[in-house]
């Protein structure tokens, strides 16, 4: 049974095929409106989520399928002490594919070992969020017309930001990517990601603390939120949270075709005045998430049927 637990589960050819399928769905949605007729997606969300859960549900409905599930641990048997293994064994009997979000890291992997239907990791704590990475790749592809041969800047919390690590992993499969890593010293990319992904794959990279100095060379700028829940010390969070704020003045230094992305939700790191700039792609990015999830659901259901 094929699952998607980690973005590294997908090779380059599979990523390209998913992005191509998603673009086809966007260009001809009606052709896919019955693709999942009679199929059911179970959304097992053990912690709150807005975009991810709703985009999975919207994706399945637009494919003509059905959705069931729960939106918090309180409304499931986990509150009675049920294991993940038992829950997915039972839920597998009611659905054709599962999307799971769980605060515990590795929970979707455990689910995949006990489910009899495909499991999609919809986010496990600070660990993986592969469908966000698919969303990010589709956005780069649609905004820039390609994924390779680009200078991609990551800005903000590069230490704890799971979306950053996953996207760097995925970009390592593409040619001629230059990474510009902008962060405070305390929130630098972890050494193992730098060594195991960037160095191992021979990716060109640059580290800096100044967004102002490098913004002019970027094709893509991926902004991230400094996440309060990752800090043990409130003072550190307060000191670092507003390290970078993208304003129209800063954006004036950027290329006219820069693509500004953000996994959302944002707090202060992108000024609301930037929203009306055509280079602000983050709301289009959120919309792309629904389409790439459709492509993924179709792929996993097709593979399960073989």
């Amino acid at each position: 049974m094929r699952h998607l637990i980690d973005i590294r589960d997908l090779g380059r050819a599979e990523l390209d095929a998913l992005l191509e399928r998603a673009e086809d769905i966007i260009s001809a949605p009606k052709e896919y409106s019955d693709s999942c007729r009679g199929k059911t997606l179970a959304t097992l969300f053990y912690e709150p989520s807005t975009r991810t859960r709703l985009s999975f549900e919207a994706a399945m409905y637009e494919l003509g399928g059905n959705v069931l599930g729960f939106a918090s641990a309180d409304s499931s048997s986990v509150s009675k002490g049920e294991t993940i293994a038992d829950t997915v064994r039972v839920v597998s009997e009611y659905c054709d594919v599962i999307a799971m979000r769980h605060p515990k890291e590795g929970a979707p992997l455990v689910a995949s070992r006990h489910a009899t239907v495909p499991v999609i990791n919809a986010g496990d704590g600070g660990h993986n969020h592969p469908t966000q990475t698919l969303t990010d790749l589709l956005t780069v592809k649609r905004e820039k017309g390609k994924v390779g041969s680009l200078t991609v800047g990551f800005c903000g919390d590069l230490k704890f930001g799971r979306t950053v690590h996953s996207l760097i992993n995925a970009l390592s499969l593409y040619e001629d990517i230059k990474l510009v890593l902008v962060s405070p010293e305390e929130l630098r990319l972890p050494g193992y990601t730098y060594k195991d992904v960037i160095l191992k794959n021979g990716m060109e990279s640059e580290m800096t603390t100044s967004l102002q100095e490098v913004i002019g060379e970027l094709d893509v700028l991926y902004m991230t939120r400094v996440q309060k829940e990752r800090f043990f010390n409130e003072e550190d969070y307060m000191r670092l949270r507003d390290s970078y704020i993208l304003t129209p003045q800063l954006l004036a230094r950027a290329k006219p075709d820069l693509c500004v992305m953000h996994p959302l939700p944002r707090v202060n790191e992108i000024s609301q005045e930037v929203d009306s700039d055509p280079r602000a792609a983050y709301f289009r990015q959120a919309a792309n998430g629904k389409h790439v999830r459709k492509a993924l659901i179709l792929k996993l259901l097709e593979e399960a049927a073989r």
Partner: peptide, 11 residues
């Protein structure tokens, strides 16, 4: 890691 699934999933 206190956030690891091994800290809560029995067996």
């Amino acid at each position: 890691n206190p956030r690891c699934v091994t800290s809560s999933e029995r067996g």
